[in-house]
Amino acid sequence: MKFWNHSLTALSLSVMLVAAGCGSNTSSEGNNSAGNNSSSTSTEASATVEATKKLEIRTSFYPMYEFTRHVAGDLANVENLVPAGTEPHDWEPTAQDMAAITDADVLVYSGGGMESWAEQVLDSATGSGLKAIEASQGIELMDGAEEGHEHGEESHEESEHAHEHAHEDEGHTHDEGAHEAEEHTHDEHGHEAENHAESGHHHDHGGLDPHVWLSPALAIQEVRNIEKGLSEAAPEYKDQFKANADAYVAELETLDKDFAAALKDSKRKDFITQHAAFGYLAKQYGLTQVPIAGLSPDQEPSPSRMADIVKFAKEHNVKTIFFETLVSSKVADTIANEIGAKSAVLNPIEGLSEEELADGLDYIKVMRQNLEALKAALNE
């Protein structure tokens, strides 16, 4: 019995050791298997990251940033070049900005002469692989000197007289062809190519109104141009860009309908604004813009122009003079004081201030503020 007990004990110990050995081997195989799975998962994750590498996009100023970020969604890093609170008409890129543009995959700009620096930047970026998207491509641009001659349901000879003085002050001369937007073609970097080879130079947009984004209907065209350009830059995301653009366009279409409905039966159709930024909006909704100054917001009107505006305002019982953000309201305030009117903001949305951004404002919200301001002024 003692031997049996010893033998049983030895056998039990052997079984335990074998079991332990098997357990050790199983554990080792499990660890190896886990290691292989981890390696496989890591490889797949890297492949996924590579497959969804985000586009690096630079935009010229706020509306282009706003439109682009809605189309790109989370498929791109979108950065705006013009800082918040900065008036973009006279902004020029620094060497650092130039480097940021050249290093990017895509540059989105509105065109039409808004970004005076664009041609130089694109020339400098030749060979970098930069894709340039001109958002206003295909939109018929208005002659800035002729703004205000397109009247709605009412016609005012005095308004036309005031605009004629504006033409003389701005010193613009245009041939008949200046009233039509030039058809653009682009090379692989998005540079404009001269359609008329015999002229041998790029078309000069000087004197044409670039403020197309202030018409919701034309903003839709800009969004579609951005969608098209991004789809060319990253065709693998074409469906996502379209879905994003469709969603944003639906909001812009609602905005367009709201403007049309709210302004259709206004008591008056003309409004005085600090600079000629609202020509496309006025034309879209049957209104007449009467600008104090020209296309540039910091342009100083001549004394004769000021006198014409005061005369027009008195004869038409204008009670609101519109000024804008980002530039001084001195000129608008002077006229308002002269005729006993008030001044109010009509925002050209060329850039938002830090405060406006902090308050969560965006293109559509500011456009709705503009609509409320116009409704009030046109029904006083």
Rank of each mutant, 00 (worst) to 15 (best):
V71S: 05
F61A: 04
Q96Y: 11
V108T: 09
P93V: 03
K54M: 08
K131T: 15
L122F: 01
P93G: 03
W91Q: 05
A99R: 13
P63E: 04
K54P: 03
R58W: 03
E92Y: 07
Y109L: 00
Y109D: 00
K53A: 12
K131A: 14
D105L: 05
I101C: 09
D123H: 11
M114A: 15
E56S: 14
A47E: 09
S110A: 08
A72N: 11
M64P: 00
T48Q: 05
N80T: 10
N77G: 04
E87Q: 13
V82N: 05
I133H: 11
V71I: 14
P93E: 02
I133Q: 13
E56M: 05
V108K: 02
E119R: 15
A104M: 07
V71E: 06
G73N: 06
V82D: 04
A84R: 12
F61C: 05
T126P: 00
E66H: 10
Y65E: 12
K54Y: 04
G129T: 14
H70Q: 15
T86V: 15
A100W: 00
P63S: 09
I57P: 01
E50H: 02
E50I: 10
R69F: 06
G127H: 14
D97F: 12
P83W: 06
M98D: 03
F67L: 13
D97I: 12
R69T: 15
L81W: 13
T48L: 08
Q96V: 13
R58S: 05
G127I: 13
E115R: 08
F67Q: 09
I101L: 10
Y65D: 10
M64E: 09
L75E: 02
W117S: 01
K53G: 12
P88F: 06
L130G: 02
K53N: 11
A95Y: 04
A104I: 07
E119S: 10
Q96D: 13
A100M: 00
S124Y: 12
E79M: 08
S124V: 09
T59K: 10
A95V: 15
L107T: 04
M98N: 06
E134T: 09
A51E: 14
T52A: 07
E134R: 14
V108P: 03
A132M: 13
P83C: 07
P88R: 04
G85E: 10
Q96W: 06
N77H: 10
D105N: 11
A72Q: 06
A99D: 08
D97C: 12
M114V: 07
P83L: 07
N77K: 13
A51W: 03
K131P: 01
G129I: 14
A76Q: 04
T48A: 06
S116P: 00
Y62E: 03
S116W: 07
Y109K: 00
V106I: 05
Q120T: 15
D105Y: 06
T52C: 02
W117M: 00
V78A: 05
K131F: 11
M64V: 02
A118T: 11
G112R: 00
G113T: 09
A47R: 07
D97W: 13
S60C: 02
E79P: 07
A118N: 12
T68F: 02
W117G: 00
K53I: 03
M64F: 02
A76P: 05
M98T: 15
